[in-house]
């Protein structure tokens, strides 16, 4: 597949007399294929927004390579900017202009037909409120306007930083549906979000960043599978057989945790093996369920940001990886 977005070894270092040296991006890699909805995940301060700003020419990197739509950045940015729609961080607009004025000025600057403004206003559900000043908008409405501004160019690549922020449940569902429709129409979407359930639902692939480095990437199901650790829950017809079953499976090299009424197994490649091993000992399985992991647990595991009782995790307090999974 063709890569629409490529980043290799991207570095950005901030130097401050007070705070010293901070590597916001520390050799970050990313690749997004054409036509995908790609999730870009990371804890606060991990370098997501820095990556997007660097990609869009707002921040100068200290090193690394970037390409958009097959063209090297930053040299080709003016040439590809017309094909890239983006919102970065919270939506910010001039408060005294209406949504129509805001989009109209952008459309004029981009030499786009005026009718495109009405099209995107319709698309994001702001048609009837387009004449009102932006300062009267709720956060969710500003978010819709931001998405509208990114869609205005009818871009080949859409980069959205927290597009669901401030949206009501209906709005989140609409946004999800919109992303799917856009991807179906051939647009590549890069989605940065903390709503991991949403990402899991709508994204084809993900990149997870922590402390400025990629810790995981790939198709969502592959990332989940890679971190499921082959967990399987096993119940037997007779609870009293659990110790014998645990012993049998342990001897076969399976990691076993005995619970009150079942066993939890880890490192199982093929669940059928478990069934066969136990049956050979006259132990009959009543339930054999692979335990699925979700993106949230993978994210928390990879970034080491799961809450610990009694501790207050600080921003930037995250895992330090040395060539993470898939890196």
């Amino acid at each position: 597949m063709t890569a629409v977005l490529e980043i290799e070894g991207l570095r950005k270092t901030y130097r401050s007399r007070k705070r010293g040296v901070r590597h916001a991006l520390d050799g970050f890699d990313m690749r997004v294929e054409a036509g995908q909805v790609h999730g870009f995940l990371g804890p606060n301060g991990s370098g997501k927004t820095t990556t997007l700003r660097t990609l869009l020419g707002l921040i100068r990197p200290n090193g690394g390579r970037m390409a958009l739509l097959g063209q090297e950045l930053p040299r080709a940015l003016p040439a590809v900017a017309g094909q890239v729609g983006a919102i970065v961080e919270s939506p910010q607009f001039f408060p005294h202009f209406s949504a129509r004025d805001t989009l109209g000025l952008l459309a004029q600057a981009g030499e786009l037909p005026r009718q495109r403004v009405d099209e995107v206003l319709e698309l994001v559900g702001l048609r009837d409120r387009a004449g009102e000043r932006v300062k009267t908008y709720s956060l969710g409405m500003k978010q819709r306007l931001a998405v509208a501004s990114a869609l205005l160019k009818n871009p080949k690549l859409l980069i959205l930083d927290e597009p669901a922020n401030g949206l009501d449940p209906g709005g989140i569902r609409e946004m999800r549906s919109l992303m799917r429709d856009l991807a179906a129409a051939g647009m590549t979407v890069v989605l940065s979000s903390h709503i991991l359930g949403e990402i899991q639902l709508i994204c084809d692939s993900v990149t997870i960043i922590s402390l400025g480095r990629r810790v995981a990437y790939g198709p969502v199901d592959e990332v989940l599978a890679a971190h499921s650790q082959g967990a399987v829950r096993v119940r037997l017809e007779a609870v009293t057989d659990l110790p014998q079953a645990a012993d049998t499976l342990s001897r076969a090299g399976v990691r076993v945790t005995t619970e009150a009424d079942h066993l939890m197994l880890a490192g199982v490649d093929k669940p059928a093996t478990v069934s066969r091993l136990l049956a050979e000992r006259g132990l009959y399985v009543s339930e054999l369920t692979p335990v699925a992991v979700d993106l949230e647990s993978v994210f928390l595991e990879l970034t080491a940001t799961a809450p610990v009782p009694g501790q207050h995790r600080q921003v930037d307090q995250s895992t330090k990886v040395e060539g993470g999974w898939g890196a």
Binding site: L56, P78, A81, V84, Q92, F94, A109, S149
Partner: peptide
């Protein structure tokens, strides 16, 4: 607004 504009005209 300046950032928005620079996303259009880098």
């Amino acid at each position: 607004g300046m950032m928005n504009l620079l996303l259009w005209r880098p």
